[in-house]
Nucleic acid binder design. Structure first.
Length: 418
RNA sequence: GGGGGAGUGUCCCGAGCGGCAAAGGGGACGGACUGUAAAUCCGUUGGCUAAGCCUUCGUUGGUUCGAGUCCAACCUCCCCCA
């Protein structure tokens, strides 16, 4: 937080939305943003086939940057992914093959089109890949030009390095170089695109500052850094973990319905904060929503779910998810928008319920289904099953031609005989 | 190069006299209570054709009726000395 309020649209918004943590030379950056069109970037490494909601604050930051009339750069880090970022990790990640990295990159790209407008215009977003310059670096020239500006003394004090050393965990020389490459990225983006600002999570502060220093020394540039707070839920959990794994942004890895549900189940205490961070809703409307008390707050959660889903998957998908949820939870009806598993009708006859639960993906194994039956958590057409050896048959098929299997209150799947 | 230590249930941390599907946490999931929330309490947390059978403790062999536990080699990591 700064003493003087920001004047530029971008910084005012970022701060009001709760995405402001720290900034280098805030006054100078504020003035710059107020006067000219600025180019900023955020890097995303290609460690998985999709980004998850842990990256959402960063994506929203770029979106707001563009909305404020500036030019965002999405930097795909397929070059740096080959090295591996040691920040915030206890041990080194398994090295990914270049094919894997390339495949991940292609898969990740798609999500950005939802949040940003790409093109050739002055404020259109641009996508760049750092492999473009990192892959071609030559070792000795790089060491002489760039390496000489880094001291080991200082690098050893960086959190990402220090934590590893303090915990007696190994840090390979490969990973040790990550911060240098990220610093180099910033400088290279300045040279190529006149990029002056790098944003990132608070764990990236050190890496960002390194880039600023390098830019000043080598390119005589005045660069800026801006970080957002690390996102956790009010109960302290890291954002985005569910039983099924991460909350992915790609629809083929985490369906819009599940995505909607994830936000719908936000803790009370987080609703206002999440509305500010993850939606475009005006602040006064958010203030009204988060002031709701008790069960009324569920209204705010529905808005949160629909708005976040609309951003990531489109308005239509969001409204479908909302409608499916409404019918399922509020009417107790069977809605065809629920995940559906098709099975040949003749196979269904006399099939053990535990097997069907497994086949349909409701549970990971028949044993898990069995345990849920023993614990009273598995239902067929909303009726709890008591017998572990229960068998499904034609009589279970409802008027809608499907069988509804549920575990708990929230996990439902439709089995459709064909 | 020499000496010492570590690797446990495919989420994590962590006990483990030769009888072990393997203590205890955390997390997650299910039940009760609620508001599809939190907190709390209870239960579950290898697989299967299920009073039985099969696969698990870094890897590969060995000793033994029987190995997470003992032996050997190897892999990875950490510490001390050089």
């Amino acid at each position: 937080m700064t003493d003087t309020p920001f004047r530029s649209d971008f910084l005012r918004t970022i701060e009001a939305r709760g995405a402001y943590q720290n900034c280098t030379e805030p006054e100078a950056l504020d003035a710059l943003l107020g006067n000219v069109r600025v180019t900023a970037y955020i890097g995303f490494d290609c460690t998985a086939p999709s980004l998850h909601i842990g990256s959402l604050v960063q994506i929203m930051t770029l979106r707001r940057f563009q909305q404020a009339g500036h030019k965002p750069i999405v930097l795909m880090g397929s070059g740096t992914t080959k090295v591996g970022d040691p920040s915030g990790k206890d041990e080194s990640r398994q090295l990914l093959s270049t094919e894997q990295i390339e495949a991940n990159k292609k898969s990740i790209l798609r999500i950005f089109e939802r949040f940003l407008t790409f093109g050739d215009g002055p404020t259109d977003a641009v996508m760049v890949d750092n492999a473009e310059w990192l892959d071609k670096l030559e070792y000795i020239p790089f060491l002489r030009d760039i390496g000489r500006h880094f001291t080991i003394n200082k690098m050893l004090t960086m959190d990402s390095v220090k934590l590893r050393l303090e915990r007696d965990q190994s840090l390979s020389f490969l990973e040790f170089n990550y911060m240098i490459l990220q610093a180099y990225d910033f400088m290279e983006l300045y040279r190529r695109y006149g990029c002056r600002l790098q944003c990132g999570g608070s764990d990236q502060w050190g890496n960002i500052v390194n880039g600023i220093d390098l830019g000043r020394r080598v390119a005589d540039a005045q660069l800026f850094g801006l970080t957002s707070p690390l996102m956790t839920t009010a109960s302290g959990a890291k954002m985005g973990k569910t039983a099924a794994g991460a909350v992915w942004l790609n629809a083929d890895m985490f369906s819009p319905y599940d995505y909607w549900q994830y936000w719908r189940n936000t803790e009370d205490r987080d609703v206002g904060r999440f509305l500010r961070l993850f939606t475009d809703m005006p602040s006064d409307e958010i203030a009204r929503l988060e002031a709701l008390q008790g069960a009324e707050l569920n209204q705010a959660k529905k808005v949160l779910a629909t708005e976040t889903t609309a951003l990531a998957h489109g308005r239509t998908a969001a409204e479908q998810a909302a409608e499916t949820a409404r019918r399922t939870f509020e009417e107790g009806a069977i809605d065809e928008g629920l995940p559906t598993y098709e099975i040949a009708a003749e196979k269904l006859k006399g099939l053990a319920l535990t097997s069907l639960a497994q086949m349909s993906g409701l549970t990971a194994s028949a044993s898990e289904a069995r345990r849920h039956i023993e614990g009273g958590g598995l239902r067929v057409n909303d009726v709890a099953v008591k017998d572990v050896k229960a068998v499904v048959g034609a009589s279970d098929i409802t008027g809608k031609g499907v069988i509804k299997l549920s575990i708990g209150k929230k996990k439902h799947i439709l089995v459709k005989p064909v």
